[in-house]
Amino acid sequence: MNKAEQALRELHEMDALAAGDSPLHRLCPLAKFLFTAAYIAAVVSFGRYDLARLAPLLLMAALLYQLAGIPVGKCFHKLRFVLPLVLAVGLFNPLLDRAPMLTLGGVVISGGVVSMLTMMAKGTLCLMASFLLMATTRVDALCAGLRRLRVPGFLLSLLLLTYRYVGVMTEEVAVMTDAYALRAPGQRGVAFRAWGSFLGQLLLRSMDRAEELYAAMLLRGYREEFPYAEAAPCAARDAAFLSVGAALLLLLRFVNVSALLGGLLMR
């Protein structure tokens, strides 16, 4: 099994995860979506040196993973290809911002290092939150929820198709890397000079397939509505989750809880 096939298996596993059962799975998709959006907004809105204040949010995410019965490690394992990209974002900060910020055990730490770590933490938290949403909510149920928010149908089609399209593309990569490997024995991966034609082919092939997939949906009456998604109506439970969650996020955002707790402990 090559890497792409492995990725494909894992993608299918997302569907299986989302079909699981836990208090979090049972919440209505809309409530989860709104909470995730609020969570991401809260994470992103912290200042570039506010590393310490992200800690409670990490705790919050860890608790939610517990509640969903999904090991946090699973998220990092599945996102191991994306994670480096997210982590790379702040990589140049230490070079750009050398002003000393604090000293830890005699080592001077510059503002750049702190802001790099903050950016990495922010990226990781956002990934963790999105992953949890996808791992506890089925895409079509999510689309059905968003449809109720009056999100235009074509946008949802796009979301749904992108989700399925990633699968299609990965499958094409699997087939093509196999075909390539068979004719280029003893070579690891696809040679750099072949990338151009490889990518071009990949795009053409997966477009053909995606087109056919969309046709298959149309032929069975797809109209950018989602009657087939499990219609879990939002209940009191969901409203409670959302308001408690939002209140917590507001608290963490506008009150420096870490410092307060730290202060309490110091006394």
Binding site: H12, A16, A19, R138, M217, R220, G221, P227, Y228
Partner: peptide
């Protein structure tokens, strides 16, 4: 994802 869901997709639409 599953056979049943695929089968009900059309009728539900």
């Amino acid at each position: 994802p599953t056979v049943l869901e695929d089968m009900t997709f059309g009728p539900l639409n």
